[in-house]
Design a protein around this nucleic acid. Structure first.
Lengths: 212, 212
DNA sequence: CAAAATAAAGTAATTACTCACTTTCTTATG
DNA sequence: CATAAGAAAGTGAGTAATTACTTTATTTTG
């Protein structure tokens, strides 16, 4: 009778395309799901592939996590560092970085989960190394900007720069955790400027006559 | 020849004892392992029980997680709040809380993993509710102390108390994450006072003649 | 057509939980 | 006070479900 085979017309794509689509799918899925509970079946389904086909594009799951970590690291570093470089004054650069970081997270709520999840894993997986390295670079950038701010006489020279770098990252963490508790990711962007203002109060030079 | 049955002399303990021993074993194990990878077999082994026996004391794994969350919440709240109540001056109380919290984490490095892990889970498990409630109480306590500090003229009245509460929890988070990156949990207690000093600089009233 | 991409079914390993049975503890009673 | 009986705690061997990864055969495409 009717057709024995409605040929289903699959669309084939290159491994490269599938790889980046898969990475983005993972980031997307992490917005709603604990990364450690993500199965290859669920990921493949999101990409629109059979589970088996996934392993034609990634040799194994670890390698997929590595690609995801690399993507996150690249995106985060690029976006955050590039806005920092648009500002002459170190304190303005720090603020811009802070807001850019929160904005990035607000658009990709799965990212804190991903990074924290990797850090919590035991051992020294490639993904974990990438995350750790990214955070170390980030921290160094903050310290450099703080030192620059001191030179510019916009940050008090008595500041404990290492502590200030930890507190900077902590401020972001605090916002993220608060968002996880409240469940509303979008309130992050509203709260971010208030948090940064308070943070910067801890080291701001208070000139009597500030010039714009 | 020798005995057909060395009777093995098991020691039986009450369900209550086993429950608390199990909870502590979980907290202990989380110091070295991602909570989401903890199996009932591993836990039972740590307690010194067969895997099946675990289910004589907990109806299921979720219930175990609930008990763990309750234990953590109780311990943390009790320890942190009790040191706060030993101080008249709100800023001193905040500092004591901060250091007590970090000390607690340093002695139980699995606890941040546990709490963050629960928060990241989807749904509304009992354990997640407990963690969320605990953090909400904590936050409220910080806000109350900040307000008290304003009354006592030890904290500047222009402070954004909500932001300060977020930054307070963020400072702890930042320390913890820094510890996870570095891998050394004990450096936490050294770094903690420096972080708190910087944090408190963001709202400290600066009297010209401070009296001890 | 040949190579790459995909589906679909299969496999071995892991895991939470169950079950049938044994060992220890508790307690009431002669 | 000794002891038998029942309750509680424990074991060890399952089981069904899940999961990362494989294999085989089919479809698309340059």
């Amino acid at each position: 009778m009717s057709a024995n085979k409605p040929p289903a017309k699959r669309t084939y794509q290159s491994t490269e395309q599938r790889q980046s689509a898969t990475v983005e799918a993972v980031v997307q899925l992490c917005a709603e799901q604990d990364p450690s509970t993500l199965t290859t079946a669920r990921i493949a389904d999101e990409v629109g592939l059979s589970q088996g086909a996934l392993f034609k594009h990634f040799p194994n799951k670890n390698s997929l996590w590595e690609s995801v970590a690399a993507w996150v690291s690249e995106q985060l570093t690029q976006r955050v560092f590039s806005v920092a470089d648009q500002h002459e004054q170190a304190d303005k650069a720090l603020e811009a970085m802070f807001l850019a970081h929160i904005g990035f997270i607000a658009r990709h709520p799965g990212i804190p989960r991903l990074m924290l999840g990797e850090l919590q894993k035991p051992g020294n997986s490639a993904a974990k190394r990438i995350v750790r390295q990214t955070l170390a670079n980030y921290r160094q950038k903050v310290i450099s900007l703080l030192n620059l701010g001191i030179q510019q006489h916009r940050i008090t020279s008595t500041i404990d720069t290492e502590a200030a770098a930890v507190l900077y990252l902590g401020a972001i963490q605090g916002l993220v955790v608060q968002g996880m508790i409240g469940g509303d990711i979008h309130s992050l962007e509203q709260a971010a400027p208030r948090i940064f203002r308070l943070y910067s109060a801890s080291f701001q030079e208070v000139p009597d006559a500030p010039q714009t």
